[in-house]
């Protein structure tokens, strides 16, 4: 087991208010970790901290050997600007290669090849010249996933990737993420609202909720009190 990210006694704050503390966990190479919890429990803030966009107010987050901050692929939530953005699918995917090129101004042919490969992986090669704003929600997420794959060979962070997608497209997307994890050996960290799908797909769960913080394997989670409460409670909906 090679640890990629280690969090020790991490506390996170938002607007100077502590929203999550005593976070201790290790993300190993090849893991599929789901971060679940109520709104405002600090899921997105934790993800920003893992990405190095925000410093934790206490504790330390260390990257394991061979992982640099710029080598993490990221699928952020979509913004209003993107929805009507005039850009071709290829332009968007290619922009994922920026992280590894430093100050060089233009893309090399290797990077263009990498972008095409990642589009092939997610089966969107035929959309190459399409305009991003004319795609369906599920197609747009595949494009952004391809972009994230261009930025990483090791680790992918996804922030609520199925928000706004219909159930069929959502489960397709879960399968794609699972494939990326299993076939390409890329470590996955995903924030999810959907606790059942999280438990179905992930092998580790981090549950944030004020004083009740749970971290462990999915099996442990299903047998824990907090896990039973959340998984069981939702079944009766």
């Amino acid at each position: 087991m090679i640890p990629l990210i280690t969090c020790e006694n991490v506390a996170l704050s938002y607007d100077n208010k502590i929203i999550a503390e005593n976070l201790n966990f290790i993300i190993n190479e090849g893991d599929y970790l789901c971060i679940v919890g109520e709104n405002g429990s600090g899921k997105s803030t934790l993800m920003r901290a893992l990405l190095g966009l925000k410093a934790p107010s206490e504790g330390t987050i260390t990257y394991g050997e061979g992982l640099k901050q710029t080598e993490i692929g990221y699928l952020p939530q979509q913004t209003a600007v993107q929805r009507d953005f005039p850009a071709s699918v290829f332009e968007v995917v290619l922009s994922g290669c920026l992280s590894q090129r430093g100050a060089k101004p233009f893309y090399s042919s290797d990077e263009k090849k990498l972008a095409l490969e990642n589009m092939e992986r997610l089966k969107i090669s035929d959309l190459k010249k399409q305009c991003y704003r004319n795609l369906s929600g599920g197609q747009q997420q595949r494009v952004l996933l391809s972009r994230a794959l261009c930025a990483t060979r090791k680790m992918l962070l996804l922030d609520e990737p199925v928000t706004g997608l219909d159930p069929v497209v959502s489960s397709e997307l879960y399968c794609i993420v699972k494939d990326i994890n299993k076939q390409f050996g890329i470590t996955i960290v995903m924030i999810s609202h959907d606790i059942h799908s999280a438990a179905d797909h992930a092998d580790h769960i981090l549950h944030l909720g004020g004083d009740d913080v749970f971290f462990g394997t999915t099996e442990e989670y299903k047998n824990s009190e907090i896990g039973k409460a959340y998984l069981g409670g939702h079944h009766h909906d």
């Binding site: 990405l51 190095g52 710029t70 993490i72 850009a87 920026l98 992280s99 930025a151």
Partner: peptide, 10 residues
Amino acid sequence: FDETFARATG
């Protein structure tokens, strides 16, 4: 296109 992604990738 995406300031957050750009920042996250350095």
